[in-house]
C-alpha cells in the first residue's frame, strides 16, 4: 500500500456504494447515474487511511479513522443527533448508556460505544448530565 492512495492504489478504490473512481464522472452525473451517496468514503478506505496514519506514528489519528469507519453506515441524522446528545447537559446517564448500546447493537461501533461510555462516567463525576 503506497500513499497517496489516490495515486498509487487508484484502481482498487471503491466508494461507499461500491463505485470506482473512474465511474464518478461528469457524464455519469449528467445522466443522473451518480448520487451524493456515491461520493462517500467506504469503511475499507478509512481502515487503509488508519493504516497510513499508524505507519506515520500517529495512532491517535488512526483511532479517529477507526471510529469513523464504524460510523460510515450510521445515517446522517442519527450521527447529528448522537453528537448533540453527547454535548454537555443534554442527556441522562441512562440515555448515554443506551446510546452506547445502540452503537454496538445496530452498527457494531465498538470504539464509538467505548468513547460514549467513558463520557457517561466522567460526565456523571463532573456533574454535566441531566
Amino acid at each position: 500500500m503506497r500513499y497517496p492512495l489516490g495515486e498509487y492504489e487508484k484502481d482498487s478504490i471503491r466508494s461507499k456504494t461500491g463505485k470506482k473512481l473512474s465511474q464518478i464522472t461528469l457524464d455519469e452525473i449528467k445522466r443522473g447515474n451518480v448520487t451524493a451517496d456515491d461520493i462517500k468514503i467506504s469503511k475499507e478506505m478509512l481502515h487503509k487511511q488508519g493504516q497510513v496514519a499508524k505507519e506515520a506514528d500517529n495512532p491517535e489519528l488512526a483511532g479517529n479513522f477507526e471510529r469513523a469507519s464504524e460510523m460510515v453506515d450510521i445515517p446522517d441524522e442519527v450521527i447529528l443527533d448522537m453528537y448533540n446528545r453527547l454535548r454537555p447537559n443534554r442527556s441522562t446517564k441512562l440515555e448515554l448508556v443506551t446510546m452506547a448500546k445502540e452503537l454496538i447493537d445496530n452498527y457494531q461501533a465498538v470504539n464509538c460505544a467505548k468513547l460514549v461510555m467513558e463520557a457517561a462516567e466522567i460526565y456523571e463525576k463532573r456533574g454535566i448530565l441531566l
Binding site: K40, L46, N64, S69, M71, M82, P88, I128
Partner: peptide, 20 residues
C-alpha cells in the same frame, strides 16, 4: 461547557467528519 462541548463530544464530532 460554555462552548457547548466536551473533549468526548468533540472527538465524536471529529470522527463523524472523517466518516464522511
Amino acid at each position: 461547557v460554555d462552548g457547548d462541548d466536551t473533549p468526548y463530544s468533540k472527538a465524536f464530532l471529529a470522527s463523524a467528519y472523517a466518516s464522511r
